[in-house]
Structures are given as C-alpha cells and as structure tokens.
Design a protein around this nucleic acid. Structure first.
Lengths: 149, 149
DNA sequence: ATAGGGTCGATGACATGTCATCGAATAGCC
DNA sequence: GGCTATTCGATGACATGTCATCGACCCTAT
C-alpha cells in the first residue's frame, strides 16, 4: 500500500469523520448556550468541580484532569469568577497554588443545565447509535486517544 | 429507560468519545503547524480551493462547502492573503461577491504540506482503525452529521 | 424604471485560546 | 541552612472565532 496517499475509502471515511468532529461539538455547544447560558468549557469546569465532595479542586489538578493548560484554566476561571460560578481560595498545602471552588450559584446553574444537556447529547448523538456501535466507538476512542502525543 | 440520565455505559462511551473529539484534531493540527506552518483552517481552505481546476471559488460558495460562516472565511481569507497564500478577485458574475484564488505560492505550500499531513492522519488515526471499523465509522459519522442542525 | 427586501463580503466589538514570561513559593542538593 | 532549578498561577500580546451591523449590489413585483 502506498502510504503517501489515502485510498478512496480512507479519504471518504476521514472526510465524514472530520465533519462529525466539527459538527457534533458545535451543535451540543449551541444547545448548551441556548438552554443554560454556558459554554462547553464552562460546563466541563462546573461538572468536574462538582465531582469532588467539597466542590474544591486545586487549579493545577483540575487543569491536568481536563487536559487543559494551566494558563487556559487560569483565564477561564477568572471569567467564571466574575460571573459568580466559581471562586478562588488559597491552597493551604501550597502557597503558590489556589483552589477553585464551585459556588452555590454555580452548583445551581449546573444542576439546572444538566438535564437539558443530557437531552442534547441523546438527541444529537446517543439516540442515533446502536449499543454495538457505541461499544465499538468507546473502545476505538480510548485506543486512539491513549496514543502518545 | 430513563432518558433524563445517561447509563454507565453511555456515560463512559460519551466521555471516551469526547476525549477523542478534542485530542485528535489537536494532535493533527499541531503536526500541521510544526511540519508546514499551517493551521487546520488554513489547510482546509487551501485544499478546498485546489479542488477547482482554476483554483478559484466565490467566497460564499467556499464558505458553504466548508460549512463556515461568511464572516469567518472573510476574516481568515484576509489573513491568508497577507501571507500570500491566496488572493481576491472581483466576481464577474456578482459585483457584491469576490473570488478567492489559490496563488502559486499557496499551491506550493499545499503540495509540500500534503504528504506530511497524510502521514499525520495515518499515524494518529487510520493506522489504528481496522477496515471494518473505518466503514462503520464512516456510516455512523455521515448519519449523525446529516441530522438537521 | 424603480422601490423594497434579501444577500454579498467587510468590519468592529467581543469571547476565548495559545504562547512566552513573570514573581512567588517549593523542593532537591550540598 | 542556603543555592538552584522547578513549578505554581497570573498576565499581556497575539491568533482566531462569533455576532451584529454596514454599505453595496441583486432580484422581483409592480
């Protein structure tokens, strides 16, 4: 096989998949903004913070967990703090660091957003994928995302 | 089934797939920037323009084909024009519009970029997907991307 | 022919992400 | 203890995308 080019099959599959890579996040992101006034990034920060019992997470760890740069999270957290969704506390373990905390307002926004978001993910994606396809997609996604950068 | 929530299977599949949605374009985009000094957006504009025999497209049609807003393409084309990759001509069919034309420089950049890009798409994606999986992925991607917005 | 509504690309304001860099604090080594 | 390299979050400059809006132009109905 000539690896310098794509076969017709590969080309068409890659095109179709690339279209999905762009369209699906865009649609779900628009739903989120319309229903809840949140960006996909906002939602990810809120929902990840809510996973901790005390709704607090060191910025550095949260960035690592979400695979964001610290810079990105620092900028984004500053904007979310202005909106009252989260706030910052000094990290008692490390005076360089800070803890991001989900505010009660932020938690309320997340709780109201979640059901709409689930509907969106279902109607735009899950409903159109069989159980077998979903299992395959999960395995394939993990396999490829786990490749070294 | 309670459609207000995701089952554990759905949740895990969606998480894994979402990771792929973010990681794969990021990796291929970084390869492109490193190898050829192009963004994914640049590459898409150049390669779509190169599909026409005369390497020209009305801005509006190109935007529609790529599923970009006219505003986005107008901004992006202005930046690419400064770099000499494309230029603009008045549209003889419609004095409101303009044609985007791939310059010789732009075509050369694309020709040198393409082989590296193919290697990137192969090594980051195609090599790790079987023919059956690829066929299923193509069908599934088309099915979902074709849903109404 | 011309009036009115729609479409064209350009533009400015703004949101968001990257990258390089900073000062402060930490951790490792002697 | 005291250097030194590293890591922390913050920040400014910049690239890129969205949205609302603009003037110019097209098209249709009268």
């Amino acid at each position: 096989m000539d690896t310098a080019w794509l076969s017709a099959d590969e080309e068409q599959a890659w095109r179709a998949f690339r279209r999905l890579l762009i369209a699906l996040p865009a649609r779900i992101g628009r739903d989120l903004a319309r229903d809840s006034g949140l960006s996909a990034a906002d939602y990810e920060v809120l929902s990840t913070l809510s996973e901790k019992p005390d709704r607090r997470w060191p910025l550095r760890e949260l960035a690592a967990k979400m695979e964001w740069s610290r810079s990105r999270l620092s900028h984004h957290a500053a904007r979310m703090q202005v909106r009252g969704l989260i706030d910052k506390e000094p990290d008692p373990q490390d005076a360089r660091g800070c803890l991001l905390r989900l505010t009660d307002d932020g938690f309320g926004v997340l709780e109201r957003a979640a059901p709409h978001h689930v509907v969106s993910v279902r109607s735009r994606f899950l409903e159109h994928v069989s159980a077998d396809e979903l299992a395959m997609l999960r395995e394939l996604s993990t396999r490829i995302a786990d490749l070294p950068d």
